[in-house]
Design a protein around this nucleic acid. Structure first.
Lengths: 137, 137
DNA sequence: TTTATAAACGCAACTCAGTTGCAAATATAT
DNA sequence: ATATATTTGCAACTGAGTTGCGTTTATAAA
């Protein structure tokens, strides 16, 4: 696992205390995070604007990606190591736990190949699963 | 196409002017609708609370179902004729147009069969496609 | 037809996630 | 040491969706 500093460097982001802590938090999370969950878990800031702006910056640089959420919150997870500013591709499924409401990236379930159909041009495919996660069942 | 009155009757909902108009609006829409889109298209009320409560009631009775939305809005589409209060099953894909932002139900794309994996118990599968819709391309 | 009642309506006020503006602070390059 | 762009933090805002409550109305029962 690459160190948080290296990652911020790689993506041309400043190494502030908060952003280092945020990268480390994402690295140590098995599931995805909302802005509010981040605020509760982090020490170096308590300002939601700071958190939202970091998330926007991280997403723009393809360090993190949005994942689905049951209650329509914005929820993020770390991208794969292969992702960078020019190459950004995810072909994994997402899993939402109906008990704890967490969302997980499931790398070993690949997306089905769907072809264009009756006038719809398909450029992206998302597969979202629901049920109960390992720690809830 | 069954008449709106019949539908409200079938689902034990009162036939008010607004709810009749709402059912007809859903029937005549090729894509899904948000509360705000409904407010703009409907004449019999201008109150958003009335709209939200009708949507909640319709959803509870399985007359409509939620569909994904790019900007995390709550978006609904009519259920299939087979759906009722005891039997409610959808196995179609959803398509989000990246140009007009509408969401469509794609009945002829069926969901892949995904099995439980490494501790995750899967009870529901959702397949969401993105691209450009027939009227946008 | 009248009456009773549960469902539906409409208004005001609220909640809460996410955003915007702006001035102050700080990481980093020169 | 200095300059510059990035990041931070506060206050105030936006806009989707919700809650409370009193009134109205569809429907069923008398």
């Amino acid at each position: 696992m690459p160190k948080a500093e290296k990652i911020l460097e790689k993506f041309n982001l400043k190494k502030t205390n908060f952003r280092l802590e945020l990268v480390e938090l994402f690295q140590s999370s098995s599931s995805s995070l909302t802005a509010d969950e981040i605020r509760q878990k982090i020490n170096s800031t308590n300002d939601k604007v700071t958190i939202y702006r970091a998330l926007t910056a991280f997403e723009k640089k393809c360090l993190i990606h949005r994942v689905p959420d049951k209650s329509n919150l914005i929820r993020y997870a770390l991208c794969q190591k292969e992702c960078n500013q020019t190459h950004h591709k995810h072909n994994h499924a997402h899993f939402i736990c109906n008990i704890c409401a967490k969302t997980f990236c499931i790398e070993d379930i690949k997306l089905p190949q769907i072809n264009n159909t009756s006038g719809f041009k398909i450029s992206k495919t998302q597969l979202t699963l629901e049920g109960s996660c390992p720690s809830c069942n």
